[in-house]
């Protein structure tokens, strides 16, 4: 399979503190990759670098066939290239309805001209309805997003990423604050999604990782510690030391 994302020796320096100390990571097409590691390992920072929120001090990020590293592009250009990012706290637009949230997020020309004259035509409607169904919010389509329950907000945001038809989906703790049933559904949704795009997920919930992962990358103190399936990773000496040595037992 071919690589969709390649990070080479990515370093991030926050005024002397290196959040990332040279990360190499490759994600393949249609892969679901989990990123785990103790707090402060740099998982979220890595996602920030890929989507352009944080600038890498050194190193490069290559995406698909795009020429040159994307790490110096503006955020909206990276998004247009096909990288969608879901943040840890649900960041939807509370004063817009569920439908309007999706209408804005949808894959379309994101220019002023197009947005002024865009019409709600049939294909658009169908696409939105299809996404609404996928994220179980068909009933709530005309509610203000701010009034949704927490889990529903998380789903709406996932829906807003899916409707962009991304090539690479970055998810930061997508199941945080969800109930058991909701987690299960989210997990299945992510697997469905991976038929169409690659997914890179940061997750703390080890049970969720165990149930839904194939490939896992463990990060520690700004570096990649090891990679492999959950079994390999769990039995890796270094991983055990990192988690247990710091008194954390959820691995």
């Amino acid at each position: 399979m071919t690589q969709i994302l390649t990070c080479n020796d990515v370093k991030v320096d926050f005024d002397g503190f290196f959040a990332l100390k040279g990360v190499d990571l490759q994600v393949e097409q249609q892969e679901v990759r989990f990123l785990i590691g103790p707090n402060g390992a740099g998982k979220t920072t890595l996602l920030d670098v890929i989507c352009g929120k944080t600038r890498a001090t050194e190193g490069s990020v290559f995406f698909q066939e795009m020429e040159g590293s994307i790490h110096k592009l503006e955020e909206h250009k990276i998004a247009l290239a096909g990288i969608a990012r879901k943040f840890q706290a649900p960041s939807i637009f509370p004063q817009l309805t569920v439908l309007e949230n999706l209408e804005l997020a949808m894959k379309q020309k994101k220019t002023l001209w197009h947005m002024l004259f865009a019409k709600m035509d049939e294909p658009t409607k169908e696409k939105i309805e299809y996404t609404l169904e996928k994220i179980n919010l068909t009933q709530e389509r005309n509610r203000l997003a701010g009034f949704l329950a927490h889990g529903q907000k998380q789903w709406l945001e996932i829906g807003m990423q899916l409707i962009q038809d991304p090539q690479l989906l970055l998810l930061d703790e997508p199941i945080a604050g969800m109930s058991g049933q909701e987690r299960e559904k989210t997990g299945r949704l992510i697997h469905d999604v991976s038929k169409e795009c690659s997914v890179l997920i940061v997750e703390h919930d080890m049970e969720f990782v165990r149930n839904f992962s194939k490939q896992v990358t463990v990060m520690h103190e700004g570096k990649v510690l090891c990679e492999g399936d959950m079994n390999t990773v769990q039995n890796d000496e270094r991983v055990i030391e990192v988690y247990l040595g710091r008194g954390k037992t959820h691995a």
């Binding site: 989507c51 929120k53 503006e74 955020e75 909206h76 998004a79 247009l80 969608a84 990012r85 943040f87 960041s91 939807i92 637009f93 509370p94 004063q95 817009l96 309007e100 209408e103 804005l104 997020a105 994101k110 220019t111 002023l112 947005m115 002024l116 004259f117 865009a118 807003m160 962009q164």
Partner: peptide, 28 residues
């Protein structure tokens, strides 16, 4: 009431979020 108008509200609610949807808020 246009889609651009909804985007203006979105910019008010979370300008950075709008960037990650592929919009350049500066233009709007």
């Amino acid at each position: 009431q246009s889609r651009a108008g909804k985007l203006l509200v979105a910019i008010r609610e979370g300008e950075n979020r709008v960037r990650f949807l592929g919009f350049n808020p500066t233009t709007f």
